[in-house]
Amino acid sequence: MVAADVPQSIPTGVPEAAATAGLNSLKAVGIGVPLLYSLTFFAAPLVFLVVLGFWLVEDFQVVPALSLDNYLDIAEHMFAKSNYALAIAQSLWVALTTAFFAVLVCYPMVLAIVYVAPRSRHRLLLMLAVAPFWSSYVLRLFSWQILLANKGIVNSGLAWAGFENLQFKLLYTQIATRIGLIHYLAPILIVVLYVTVANIDRHLIQAARDLGATRWQAFRRVILPMSRTGLLVSTSFAAIVSFGDVLSGALLGGGAGASVLGSVPLFSNMIMSEYASSTNLPRTAALAMILVLVMVLMLAGGAALAERTKVDAG
């Protein structure tokens, strides 16, 4: 993704006749095939998703229409029956706190890798951190289920070790949802943050230390500001992924896991379960559009906030 901008000189000398042979057809295939595929199977479905939200279901058949019924119905149930507004609030709350804690947990991990572990070990440590990412996400969540269950491995292990009074009720709460998500996000965040932190010029840190800065001051004044972009990117990435994820909320949150907001399902889980029970695709499309809208607003809010902190810091 980065290499796209590597300037590549095009041979300027007059090409031989043979060299130009097939140049145009090569260009046509090279650009045309991926472009056509992308337009047909990526752009077209997204455009159609917007259209589909205005269609209706009559006699179990999807029929073209230009109707606001889906959206009006959803608006009606924002604070009644399905309580979409509560589900959206729950999703935002879980996604934002997950993103915050995920970065809070991964950043010190990366600092430890970069500044404590010897350089020759970095590659191994990164490989190890990325390893969970290569195992199936659904199956890892199953594993977390048997770990976190009320009589699961964590609790039975604690009891076995003599801590009968130290028992956790985690499964089917949004805390479990967050644990699953953080475990899912950690490998990616560690790699992104590693690239950021490892690229900080050590001379700057050395200079700060030489000039009498304490270790904490060197961190606060040099490392932290220089990690800013990496931290912002990983936080927003984590928030987007958490907001759109269905699996952790369904399997660890149990569909309607409890949080401080109450036992309310995530909006993403609601979309999935509504489609499973109704197979009403136009309505599902409308709900999906609302998810997109909320996500765009969330990102815009985050960007505005980042801009403000930049001004404050400066």
Binding site: G244, S268, L291
Partner: peptide
């Protein structure tokens, strides 16, 4: 724009893509 178009799918939540794909494919 060409490279953005090709990278864009990973930035959109798969849940959205799932609904969108099914919408078009079922037609």
């Amino acid at each position: 724009a060409f490279s953005v178009l090709l990278v864009l799918p990973v930035l959109i939540p798969p849940l959205i893509l799932g609904v969108a794909f099914l919408g078009l494919l079922s037609r």
